[in-house]
Amino acid sequence: MNHRTAPRTRPRARTPAARSRTPAALGGPAALAAAFLAVPLAGVVAHTPWRGLAGQLSSPDVVRALGLSLLVSGLALLLSLVLGVPLAWLLARTDFPGKALVRSLVLLPMVLPPTVAGVALLRGFGRGGLLGGPLEAVGVTLPFSTAGAVVAAAFVAMPFLVIGLEGALAGIDPRYEEAAATMGATLPQTLRYVTLPMVAPSLAAGAALCWARALGEFGATITFAGNLPGVTQTLPLQVYLLLQQDPAAATSVSLLLLAVAAAVLIALRGRWLGHSR
């Protein structure tokens, strides 16, 4: 390895000839990887019944599921912002016992199979779960309710917000805030005029990813919240059941979700497709 890289660090490594050498070795597998990711998406586009598309996407069932999906993912984002922003701030700025444990807890839903998240939610917040009794005592039953779908979506999506924001907060040079404080700014003023503007792009990116993940949530929702049109049947659940009855309609709805996901990426273009760095 060392033998090989050594000559490339010399000045001539920057010439076009030297640069074109690397792709020769990696080009094949890289093209394979890109094709591997592209083919299924192309399949959705190719099999979309364009003629019936408008009709299928405006059918009452799809409209109802879309409305519910927007509501559930919006509330999940709100819940993630209300709870996740303070958590990110504490993780980035303070030291407290068990901090490593808390950070692992935040990361865990990102790598957990969503159906496992659903089982865990049932065991925690279900009627027979750890907090089921106390919740029922105050009149809250989460399974089979829209609130349950929001909880399921927030559980798997909040980490995307917390992790992104924590990184941005930790990356701010504390001297900016110190300078603001020495000029007599109160803590809320410092947050409002110094910290927030500096992390705003990261906050927006984290929120967008969080929302997209909540919109796409399937496994935890169907396991924890069930499947009832208008109450807990979000678009991904509808795609799953439609595929068994009407594959063409399932493909149309898939295209809709694909378009939304693509829109989120385009909105984040500056940050995630390598423009700003």
Binding site: L122, G128, P143, F144, A225, G226, N227, L228, Y240
Partner: peptide, 20 residues
């Protein structure tokens, strides 16, 4: 119903778990 489960086994488990 509070839910229309994707399989009959899922119906059974919701009752077993006491959720329904």
């Amino acid at each position: 119903p509070v839910s229309r489960e994707p399989s009959v086994r899922a119906v059974l488990s919701k009752v077993e778990l006491g959720e329904a």
